[in-house]
Amino acid sequence: MKLDLSGKEVINTSPERLWEALNSPDVLTRCIPGCKSMTETAPDHYDVLMELKVAAVGGTFEGKVALTEKQPPSTCNITVSGEGSLGNGTGKASFTITPEPDGASLLTYEGEGEIGGLVAGVGQRILKSVSKHLTGQFFKALRKECEASEAERKAG
C-alpha cells in the first residue's frame, strides 16, 4: 500500500547545522526509530539495520539509504528501501531547508512510500498512524539532537 509522507517541521538551529545533522549517519542512527546501525557503503549510500513493530508484526529489516541531488544546505533527495522477512518498504522524499527568523530552520519534506508483505497485509489499518507516529518520533529526536548541540555551541 502507498503512504503519503509529507510535512514541515521548524527546528531551532541554522540551516547549515540542520543540513549537517541530516547528513550524519551517527545522528540519523540515533534519530530514526528502531535504527540499529547505519553503515556507509559509498559516499551518500548507507546500509541500515532496523527493528520495528507494526501491530502484531515485528521484525528486523535490512535496508539501503541513498542521498542524491544534494544542494547544501537547502535541498536533497532521499531514497530508502528495506526488506525483512515480514515485509518490505520503499520510499522517496525530497527535503527543503529554508531559514526562519531567530536563526531557526524550516524543514519541508514531501514524499511517498510503499509498503508490502505481511506488514501491509496485517497492519494496513494502522499503517498511516504508525508512519505518522514514527515520523513524529524522528523529528522529536532530531530536534533534541540539534537543540542540544546548539546549546552546547552557545555554552562553548
Binding site: M1, K2, E114, I115, G116, A120, G121, V122, Q124
Partner: peptide, 14 residues
C-alpha cells in the same frame, strides 16, 4: 487487494 497487489484482508480483523 490494494493497487500494489498486496492482500489487505488476511486475518479476521479485516
Amino acid at each position: 487487494y490494494d493497487a500494489e497487489g498486496q492482500l489487505l484482508t488476511q486475518s479476521f480483523m479485516d
